[in-house]
Amino acid sequence: MGLQELWFILIAVLFIGYFVLEGFDFGVGMLMPVLARGKKGSASPDTRRRAVLNTIGPVWDGNEVWLITGGGALFAAFPDWYATLFSGFYLPLLLILVALIVRICAIEYRGKIDDPRWRARCDVGIAIGSWVPAVLWGVAFANIVRGVAIDENKKVVSGFFDLLNPYALLGGATTAIVFALHGAVFIALKTTGEVREDAVKLASRLSIPAVVVAGSFVLWTQLAHGKGWTWILVAAAAASLIGVVALTSVEREGWAFVLTTVAVIGAVGLLFGSLYPYLMPSTIDDAYSLTVTNASSSPYTLKVMTWAAAFMLPVVLAYQAWTYWVFRQRISTAHIPPSIGLPLKSR
């Protein structure tokens, strides 16, 4: 295996890490409005929302570092891939970026002003900033695997609506429902009391549709683009989601979270495994396709990057693991203090 193949694998690992970690972040934001509604006599909707949001409070911004690192590695290791991808997918990637910015601002500023209308607007921003990337990431990666119209100048000549084909839309539905399930299980794992009970029930309801939707997508991917060995990833993703159905029904959210993680790893690994040795197949002419050999940086650049990754990656992994260990305790509505934001009039 050469450095080009190594960096293709490393980029796949970075995006797998991003979708595993940011996947449950998206799920938490997607499900906040649902889990805000409790039984009569339970905590207030705002308290429940804050409890749900606090499950990712210490880690969500660190999880986004995986995307930044993945994008940087893509730019440095395969500059032609980066240029073609970001120019050809400009609109969906711009929508993802705007949604992430809205989400960041909503999370950071939600508690700054003690006003129900302000918090309601921030909650809308969190929901939009979670749903839009959850869908569009699936659409984008499905199109990368399926192939787009790339001409001899390495330029994508198809339009935005060409990306909205049935396979890509199914990919978007898959990432959305799997992230929602991943988030529901994570909330159940990180909370106690009434929020945990409702999260477990919600995860149980989401698990069967997730099996159907995600199972259809991974099977389509395998039959249309997969290789012999990627059947292993298909089986791992499918078996994991089926296991989640059983585990959520008996409230074993710890093992259910392990299996949703395996399902995400299997599905994203299937996409990258089906893609190799291509980076972006061309539907115009196979000669115009980007591959790990014709779109990579120089051997010297890849060598320097490899040494830098060898030193820095363990440090980043150790720090993030330490963060999750420090903030491992469960949260309940009883832990949520009164709002301390300033009144709206004082602003």
Rank of each mutant, 00 (worst) to 15 (best):
F8Y: 15
F8L: 08
F8E: 10
L10G: 06
L10R: 07
L10P: 12
L10K: 05
I11E: 06
I11V: 14
I11L: 13
A12H: 04
V13D: 03
V13Q: 01
V13F: 09
V13M: 14
L14C: 13
F15S: 02
F15G: 03
F15T: 09
I16K: 03
I16Y: 02
I16A: 05
G17T: 08
G17P: 05
G17R: 11
G17L: 11
G17Y: 03
Y18H: 12
F19S: 06
F19P: 00
F19Q: 09
V20K: 15
L21I: 10
E22V: 14
E22G: 15
G23I: 04
F24E: 03
F24L: 12
F24C: 03
D25M: 12
D25N: 15
F26W: 15
F26R: 12
G27A: 09
V28R: 00
M30R: 09
M30V: 14
M30I: 13
M30W: 06
M30T: 06
L31I: 10
L31C: 02
M32G: 08
M32W: 08
P33Y: 14
V34L: 13
L35F: 10
L35Y: 02
A36W: 06
A36K: 15
R37Q: 15
R37H: 15
R37I: 14
K39S: 10
K39W: 07
K39H: 12
K39T: 11
K40V: 10
K40G: 03
K40W: 09
G41L: 13
G41C: 13
G41T: 10
S42P: 13
A43T: 05
A43G: 11
P45W: 08
P45L: 07
D46T: 10
D46W: 04
T47Q: 08
T47P: 07
R48V: 00
R48E: 00
R49F: 09
R50V: 05
R50K: 15
R50M: 00
A51G: 13
A51Y: 03
A51M: 08
A51C: 11
V52M: 04
V52L: 02
V52Q: 00
V52S: 01
L53T: 00
L53F: 10
N54L: 04
N54R: 01
N54H: 12
N54D: 02
N54V: 03
T55L: 05
T55R: 00
T55Y: 01
I56Q: 03
I56E: 03
I56P: 03
G57R: 05
G57M: 10
G57K: 12
P58Q: 08
P58K: 14
V59W: 01
V59S: 05
W60E: 00
D61H: 09
D61R: 14
D61P: 05
G62M: 12
G62I: 14
G62V: 14
E64F: 04
V65F: 13
V65Q: 01
V65L: 11
W66H: 09
W66G: 06
W66E: 06
W66C: 02
L67Q: 08
L67V: 13
L67P: 11
I68T: 02
I68H: 01
I68D: 00
T69V: 11
G70I: 09
G70W: 07
G71M: 15
G71I: 15
